[in-house]
Amino acid sequence: MRLSYPTSIKIVKLPCTGKIDVLYLLKAFQSGADGVYVAGCMEGDCHYLTGNLRAKKRVEYTQKILDEVGVGGERLAMYNMSAAQGARFVEVAQEMTEKIKELGPSPIKKQKSEIRSQKPEDNMKESIPSPLAGEG
């Protein structure tokens, strides 16, 4: 297929999206991610039955926390796709990247770079959405 997707995306592999934890998602934002999306299997197709459904609930819970702390729950998303949908994977990667570019850098990253006393080399780098991809 040899499809390409945005280079700003860093993939974190998990055995199943059921392994997703609220803390993993928060830590990604603490580490400076501008956006995070969870790529799980199609609903109803989880090898572990309910891993992707659990992930969905945890993503929703984390979105509320992100809203409360001012980062914005819209920077976190969950998508469902099968392992056979390479084209869909690329589509989602592009969609999420565009969304995050529109939102701009994470306010956390903004604060960090302002604290670093406006050194020219510390200017905003390209937005980095990082997907947490599971096979479950």
Partner: peptide, 21 residues
């Protein structure tokens, strides 16, 4: 312990956002 970790992360994010370490 788990909730300590989550709350700590959430508070840190909020304070980083406010620019108050």
């Amino acid at each position: 312990e788990k909730e300590v970790g989550i709350l700590s992360s959430a508070i840190s994010l909020a304070r980083q956002n406010q620019g108050k370490a």
